[in-house]
Design a protein around this nucleic acid. Structure first.
Lengths: 215, 215
DNA sequence: CCCTCAGGTTAACGACCACTAACCCGCCTG
DNA sequence: CAGGCGGGTTAGTGGTCGTTAACCTGAGGG
């Protein structure tokens, strides 16, 4: 009712997409009915079909959209600070963190409901995701040159998991606020990447923290 | 028909649970029909109701089971190596990695379909999860004593995301094999924890890897 | 002033699905 | 050999859901 903020020209489409993303993330694609999505934006049920071809089309647009934005943002950051790889990595991490903290539902959908897409859309999303990963891999390899590519790639995946973990957090209160959280996640990501090329000598069972090269 | 392998005393219940876990992880709880689950174990449709009260009961048993096993395993490891916190942490990490690598579908379900449970079951699972997290928090705080508890808790959540990222990996080939993967994940987790209490002085934009105290 | 059309509405339809009912059979026990 | 019973089967049922059909309305332009 009292929609005080956001008098911006938020088109009906975008409004629907936002609510659909939230609902899909909360209860899963199959767990949400079109009537609920409609109700969330004040219209009811089949009125949605004036804006979208169907429920699948909403999910497809959401997933393709987020993948494109992630990749575009990543490419932008790479171009901006092209000289200093470490700075580029910092920027990539910060950009991803902003996404994870501010667009939680989308991040959730991104790696949760991908299989509900039609073949064509799924292929497109996967391609975008792969390009995004490779972007990171290249940058990380410039910072940690000694590491094998396959290990770096796995580490990038793992760090995505780390950064995207915010949606699964319990209720706040026992956790840091948003700015502290952003800085903490940044540190954790860098710490993880820094451990990629530690010598494998660190024997399991020995309690010592993995040695790091003083570089 | 020709069920050549698995003559082990794998009870029908367990067999059903295993296949149900796989299917739920692949296509989501609502995306799988009971007929499919039945077909996966060679019986068809309503035959499942001789073993389970319903589809919900299968999911509940899966999620409660995995949560209990994770917690029990964690407690065991804490007791075994009580003296040396760093060794305990190593053991916790290895145990979780084994789980993530060997029981991928369960790990996926664990943080994906929790909301599809009835109130009572959901509460139980969340309680088990919380205890598991607190177990880790205590151990990590013994290793990194200077860190604030809320930051450690967030870091534990994040490292879970890191370790659980394996299910989302594309097809193998561009990634390390299972043993290398286990060791890599171990290193990454330790690296992340090691970065929890780095002085906040590490300015963003400075590319330096977060400093670590030589302890 | 009509006419179009964007953006709604409600009603209905067809598919799917979890679950139940009713029946069946082979094995073990007494 | 009787009979219970664990573990199946197929047919059916009620409900939900995505989608379509048919109808309505208010605003803007010629």
């Amino acid at each position: 009712m009292s929609n005080a903020h956001a008098p911006a020209p938020t088109s009906r489409r975008e409004q629907i997409l936002k609510e659909a993303a939230r609902l899909f993330a909360e209860r899963g694609f199959h767990g949400v009915g079109v009537d609920e999505i409609g109700a969330a934006v004040g219209i009811s049920g089949p009125g949605l079909y004036r804006h979208f071809a169907g429920k699948d089309a909403m999910l497809a647009e959401l997933l393709v959209g987020i993948s494109e934005r992630l990749l575009a943002g990543g490419r932008m950051r790479v171009e901006e600070g092209g000289e200093n790889p470490a700075a580029v990595l910092d920027a990539l991490i910060d950009g991803h963190i902003d996404f994870a903290l501010d667009d939680r539902p989308l991040i959730t959908l991104h790696d949760r409901e991908l299989d509900r897409l039609r073949e064509a859309d799924r292929k497109r999303v996967r391609q975008l995701q792969r390009q995004y990963v490779e972007l990171w891999v290249q940058v990380v390899r410039q910072v940690h040159a000694e590491s094998a590519e396959s290990e770096v790639r796995a580490a990038v995946h793992a760090v995505f998991g780390l950064l995207n973990s915010t949606p699964h957090l319990g209720r706040p209160g026992s956790l840091p606020g948003r700015p502290e959280m952003a800085r903490l996640l940044h540190r954790l990501a860098l710490g993880a990447f820094g451990a990629v090329d530690a010598e494998a000598a660190a024997g399991a069972g020995d309690g010592a923290v993995a040695a790091r090269r003083a570089g």
